[in-house]
Structure formats: C-alpha cells, structure tokens
C-alpha cells in the first residue's frame, strides 16, 4: 500500500499531522495525495512500557521519526533491527501490533 499525505492545493506542499488548513500558506484546500514513500530514520526508540494493558504483551516495540524525502516527518513503527539513524526506509499505511491502523516503515535493504 502506498503512502498518502495531506497536500495543499495552493502551495503544493505536504504536511503532517493532518490539518484542514495548510501550515505553510494557510490554504484551505487540502487533498490527500499519494507521495514518494521513501525516507530516512531521524531518531528512534525501543518502547518497554505502555499505558495500555493490551499493548504490553507486544513490547518491546520500536517507534521512529522518519523524514520523508518530501521533507515531512512522521512517526512510524519500525523493526527493531532497522533503528539506526540515517537508515533508508519505505513508509506505508499498515497496522500496529494490536491491529490498529498506523504508519509502518521497512528498511529498503530488506
């Protein structure tokens, strides 16, 4: 599955998290648009604790900040082996450990 992000029809820039108003130009026509889904790991953490009991059986899990090549940064789930900073990844919409919709990243070398 490819990656769609909110995209401003006025200034042609994407942003995240989703907004109804563009944070760059205050344009109010935003459409979810498919974008190039490659990016790099900016920072990452291995989580050992959750506030949600049903999450705990899945721990530890790795969550990372990815800067997409369009410049936008997103939080994603990542395989713990891929958390090196600078690692190249592909981001897509998928599911997290408990089945909820989430962005996931996979190393391009996998």
């Amino acid at each position: 599955m490819n990656l769609c992000l909110p995209h401003c029809q006025v200034c042609a820039r994407s942003h995240w998290p989703s907004r109804e108003i563009c944070p760059h130009c205050l344009g109010h026509e935003i459409q979810w648009t498919e974008i190039e889904s490659s990016g790099s790991v900016v920072t990452a953490t291995l989580l050992h604790h959750s506030l949600e009991p049903r999450f705990r059986e899945h721990l530890p899990v790795c969550v990372a900040t990815i800067q997409l090549d369009c410049g936008v940064c997103v939080l994603v789930y990542l395989e713990p082996g891929d958390l090196a900073i600078g690692n190249r990844v592909i981001v897509s919409t998928g599911t997290g450990p408990t089945g909820q919709e989430a962005l996931v990243a996979k190393s391009v070398t996998r």
Partner: peptide
C-alpha cells in the same frame, strides 16, 4: 491522531 497509535505511551515517546 498521530502519536497515540504508536504504543499508547504518553510523553515518554
């Protein structure tokens, strides 16, 4: 929308 789905962690994340 964009943080809570990633582990339901709170500010530690």
């Amino acid at each position: 929308d964009a943080v809570l789905p990633y582990g339901i962690v709170g500010p530690n994340l």
